[in-house]
């Protein structure tokens, strides 16, 4: 079958199959799946507010999905998007608190840049370690996640902490806040989504149109042949980790600039890890990742409404798990298929 059509069909069919399987689970707990899914759709897309809220949830997921997907394309498994997102948001906040004197036209791009550089620098630690010592990025990024987690807890409690209750930083300067595209009651749909989509398009151009993208993909597919072709593997590893980290850092930064307007210890909430499933469902394709993130954002957002008709929102976790399982299974099937061809 046509390769492109197949990579499009697999995730779509996986979603359908997952929803069907989950409907049996809903039946088993004595509820009506049709009612449940109707509520799910209503909650995700049923009103202006629902749509706005879905898009808000989707924005960071696009970026963490891109972060992980970009790593995969270069042959790296960046599990550290979570930590890079935290560090990016934290450093961007520290910067954005102090830019009240700057006009928004400067403050907004600079804050994003700071967040991206911070995420990139943090991810580069794992990149350098892999390039210089061969330390596997899965191990180092997991460790860096914990460091970022505890560091941020410290930062929002002691040096940057304000007020009582949830540890949090002061609010960022209003010139660094993202302008809302639309305000529906309490939900602000900020322009962050535009930045996220732009990032996906840029990543697509980098991967498909530039010689650097050629090198990153070559090193990801076959490091031996890449080295034979004069590509410096060590440089590529560091660069790929840095770009991946920059995307994750941007995810955190946009959450600060557009949603919370301050740094919270619980800001990432596992969105860095969600990036792994989203990259998988989106087949590491930037455009695919946008849709995968949208799907995930919609499911998450709609699940609250589902709760109101008596179906636990954790059903969505089952749906998500089945989707990932089916998409991953397809990759296994295809990997075996490809290997067989090679063996001939």
């Amino acid at each position: 079958m046509n390769q492109k059509l197949w990579s499009f069909l697999v995730p779509v069919l996986s979603v359908v199959v997952a929803l069907i399987i989950a409907s049996f689970v809903i039946l088993m707990i004595g509820k009506n799946p049709i009612t449940a899914y109707a509520a799910l759709i209503r909650g995700a897309l049923g009103s202006k507010m629902a749509i706005a809220s879905t898009i808000v949830k989707t924005t960071p997921l696009i970026l963490t999905g891109l972060a992980v997907g970009f790593g995969f394309r270069a042959g790296l498994f960046n599990i550290g998007a979570e930590g890079q997102m935290i560090v990016g948001a934290m450093v961007a906040t520290a910067f954005a608190i102090n830019v009240g004197w700057m006009p928004a036209v400067l403050a907004i791009p600079l804050t994003m840049l700071v967040g991206m550089v911070a995420g990139a620098a943090y991810a580069s630690i794992a990149g350098f370690l892999k390039a210089k010592t061969g330390a596997h990025e899965v191990v180092t990024t997991i460790m860096l996640n914990w460091i970022a987690d505890y560091l941020s807890s410290y930062v929002v409690t002691v040096p940057m902490g304000v007020g009582f209750g949830t540890p949090k930083s002061p609010e960022i300067a209003s010139s660094a806040k993202l302008p809302p595209l639309m305000v529906v009651q309490a939900t602000e749909l900020t322009s962050g989504i535009i930045v996220a989509v732009l990032a996906a398009i840029l990543m697509k151009i980098l991967l498909d149109k530039t010689s650097k993208g050629y090198e990153l993909k070559a090193a990801g597919f076959n490091p031996y042949a890449a080295e034979y072709g004069g590509i410096k593997l060590a440089d590529n590893i560091v660069l790929a980790m840095a770009i991946s980290g920059a995307l994750a850092g941007l995810a955190g930064t946009l959450e600060v600039m557009g949603v919370h307007h301050r740094f919270l210890g619980t800001l990432s909430g596992g969105k860095g890890f969600d990036g792994i499933s989203i990259a998988l469902i989106g087949q590491n394709n930037p455009i695919g990742i946008i849709f995968a993130a949208l799907l995930m954002g919609a499911l998450r957002n709609g699940s609250n409404e589902m709760q109101f008709v008596g179906v636990p929102k954790h059903i969505i976790m089952i749906v998500q798990a089945i989707i990932i399982f089916l998409v991953a299974a397809d990759r296994i099937v295809r990997a075996i298929f490809l290997r067989k061809k090679v063996a001939k």
């Binding site: 993909k217 070559a218 597919f221 076959n222 031996y224 042949a225 890449a226 034979y228 490809l338 090679v342």
Partner: peptide
Amino acid sequence: HIPEDRHKYGLILQF
């Protein structure tokens, strides 16, 4: 350079 192992060094099979 025509390498001895065309699958390992010579080609990127997924390209």
